[in-house]
């Protein structure tokens, strides 16, 4: 056994190897994103995930082994969701005056997200269980998986669709809003949160604190509304 492979055996026995790899992949991805002046295509989630997937594949590491180490980072999603209260508190005077547009955009966006996704996949002939897995794709993964499971979908397919939607939204939001000539950061952030949950919110915080605050509001409210409307809409389809 060579020295290098002996070192590998030693490191691989500890879940902390994959924790370190996760942090390293993110540090490099975030540096690249900064160097590209936060260009939407240089998305840090996408780059870090691609790098880690390649490492897992090359080393033949099962995802469960990887997650033993990475769970410490994953756990922070909970505290981060609670931390969204702080920008909400700081920007409350701005949020307060926008309650009506928030509710209107939430209703319109939530319905559009579900109906357009299910409609397009249905037109392509996707079966019911795939449609049920797809319907909650714009909300945060935990809620989406619960909705999908309740409707007879496949929660783990839902999780993959949710993450993909998040990355797509985070990449698309800036160029789309610029092309539409929308300069209101409240609207831009809110759209990112409704369409692409936490990953869209992460993008919004990179661009502007007000956009991030509104994305965080959208992320929370859309989870609630989608959990109410998806079962009703899917009952009609079934």
């Amino acid at each position: 056994m060579s020295d290098a492979s002996r070192l590998w055996v030693y490191l691989a026995a500890s879940p902390l190897l994959w924790l370190a790899m996760t942090l390293l992949a993110y540090a490099i991805a975030d540096r690249l994103s900064l160097a590209a002046k936060r260009h939407p295509l240089v998305n840090p989630v996408l780059i870090a995930v691609a790098a880690l997937s390649a490492m897992l594949w090359a080393s033949g590491t099962p995802y469960a082994t990887y997650f033993e180490g990475a769970q410490f980072v994953h756990f922070l999603l909970g505290p981060a969701t609670v931390a969204l209260a702080i920008p909400l508190h700081r920007n409350w005077p701005v949020v307060r005056t926008a309650i009506v547009p928030i509710l209107a955009a939430l209703g319109a966006g939530s319905l559009t997200a579900v109906i357009s996704a299910v409609g397009i996949a249905w037109a392509f002939g996707a079966p019911y269980d795939v449609l049920a897995s797809l319907a909650p794709k714009s909300v945060t993964a935990a809620i989406a998986m619960g909705i999908s499971e309740g409707l007879g979908g496949n929660p783990s397919l839902t999780a993959a669709l949710v993450i993909t939607t998040g990355v797509l939204g985070a990449i698309m939001v800036t160029p789309m809003m610029n092309a539409m000539g929308l300069t209101d950061y409240r609207a831009r952030g809110f759209a990112a949160g409704v369409a692409s949950h936490g990953i869209g919110t992460a993008r919004a915080f990179q661009v502007d604190p007000v956009a991030g605050t509104f994305a965080g509001i959208a992320l929370g409210l859309n989870g609630l509304i989608t959990a109410l409307i998806v079962p009703a809409l899917m009952a009609w389809l079934r």
């Binding site: 996760t22 993110y26 989630v45 995930v49 880690l52 769970q71 994953h74 990355v167 990953i199 993008r203």
Partner: peptide, 9 residues
Amino acid sequence: SLLFVPAGA
């Protein structure tokens, strides 16, 4: 962004 990497992988 970092916090979504483990789920994304």
